[in-house]
Computed example of a mutant assay.
Amino acid sequence: MPKVKTKSGAKKRFKLTGTGKVKRKHAFKSHILTKKSTKRKRALTHSGLVSSADMNRVNQMLNI
């Protein structure tokens, strides 16, 4: 049986933490930034964690 490939998009977007949680970046920070407030852009800079509802899908894409 061949190896199962990881989804390329997922491996670029998610990182595993030491405790096994999955880190992610916020959306809406790449373009059309002039109409967004400085406070909003600064808040989007920080990374977050994938919610428990999405963990199964992300783990499947990363083959964890």
Score class of each variant (00 low, 15 high):
residue 28 F to L: 07
residue 47 S to R: 08
residue 55 M to G: 05
residue 60 Q to F: 05
residue 13 R to C: 10
residue 27 A to R: 09
residue 27 A to H: 11
residue 26 H to R: 14
residue 43 A to E: 15
residue 21 K to T: 07
residue 40 R to Q: 13
residue 60 Q to W: 09
residue 41 K to S: 04
residue 13 R to M: 07
residue 44 L to D: 09
residue 14 F to G: 00
residue 19 T to P: 03
residue 11 K to E: 11
residue 62 L to D: 02
residue 19 T to S: 12
residue 57 R to W: 01
residue 7 K to I: 09
residue 35 K to V: 14
residue 40 R to P: 03
residue 44 L to R: 14
residue 52 S to I: 10
residue 11 K to T: 06
residue 14 F to S: 00
residue 51 S to C: 08
residue 42 R to M: 05
residue 62 L to T: 03
residue 30 S to D: 05
residue 45 T to Q: 10
residue 57 R to D: 10
residue 57 R to H: 07
residue 10 A to I: 02
residue 63 N to P: 04
residue 37 S to T: 15
residue 40 R to K: 15
residue 5 K to F: 13
residue 48 G to T: 06
residue 34 T to E: 13
residue 45 T to L: 02
residue 20 G to I: 05
residue 18 G to H: 05
residue 28 F to W: 08
residue 17 T to Y: 04
residue 42 R to D: 12
residue 37 S to R: 04
residue 23 K to G: 01
residue 22 V to F: 08
residue 34 T to P: 11
residue 64 I to D: 02
residue 7 K to Q: 10
residue 58 V to Q: 01
residue 45 T to S: 10
residue 45 T to I: 09
residue 27 A to M: 07
residue 4 V to F: 02
residue 41 K to H: 04
residue 5 K to R: 13
residue 8 S to G: 04
residue 63 N to A: 03
residue 11 K to G: 02
residue 39 K to G: 14
residue 16 L to D: 11
residue 30 S to L: 01
